[in-house]
């Protein structure tokens, strides 16, 4: 049994002594699963905590041998979508707020977000889950609920687009 599965078995016994290791092993996957949808660093970090709490709350549902990165990515993605949909319903006030000139505009400094912003939403999610989160296309197809062929097609199209446009970030 590899390290992460050993820790998960400990967590199932409510033994949290290795949780920080687990967190560091998985935080990138959780973060990028979220941020590929909501594109807000601070908000993504907030949602991350909810993702881990949900994971720990339902940890007995995690099947031994499953890919924990895919599992956490799925939780992260679902919670980000829920959050996004809730925000969408606040569009009236959002429009109003956006119409007010902001004195401080937070600039997106991280190159990775600029690179991912070159893609359409589904392209961004699939590239993130495969390249950053190291998930297999078969796992991604389950998460995004699209046929494997569609996922591969979207991925190849996204990579082709990035090969042309991402040169500036080298």
């Amino acid at each position: 049994m590899d390290k992460i599965h050993v820790i998960i078995e400990e967590l199932k016994q409510r033994d949290y002594k290795s949780f920080d290791t687990f967190y560091n092993l998985t935080k990138n996957q959780v973060f990028y699963a979220i941020v590929s949808i909501i594109k807000d660093h601070a908000m993504a970090e907030d949602i991350m905590q909810d993702v881990y709490m949900k994971f720990l709350e339902k940890i007995d549902d995690f099947k031994p041998g499953s890919n924990p990165y895919a599992y956490l990515s799925t939780i992260g993605r679902n919670m980000a979508i829920n959050h996004y949909n809730r925000r969408k319903k606040e569009f009236v006030s959002e429009e109003f707020i956006n119409s007010i000139p902001s004195e401080e505009v937070e600039e997106v400094n991280e190159d990775i977000f600029k690179i991912l912003d070159l893609l359409k939403p589904m392209e961004r999610q699939i590239v993130t889950l495969h390249v950053i989160n190291d998930l297999k296309f078969r796992e991604i197809a389950v998460i995004v609920e699209k046929p494997l062929g569609t996922v591969l097609w979207i991925y190849n199209k996204a990579i082709k687009k990035l090969r042309e446009k991402a040169v500036d970030f080298i």
Partner: peptide, 26 residues
């Protein structure tokens, strides 16, 4: 390109919430 994406993604600083998560999990 894939190496660039991977490298850039690792440059992002993600806060460590592990302790507060453990506190809540208990």
């Amino acid at each position: 390109l894939l190496k660039l994406i991977k490298t850039k993604s690792e440059e992002v600083n993600i806060k460590d919430f592990s302790q507060s998560i453990i506190d809540n999990a208990k």
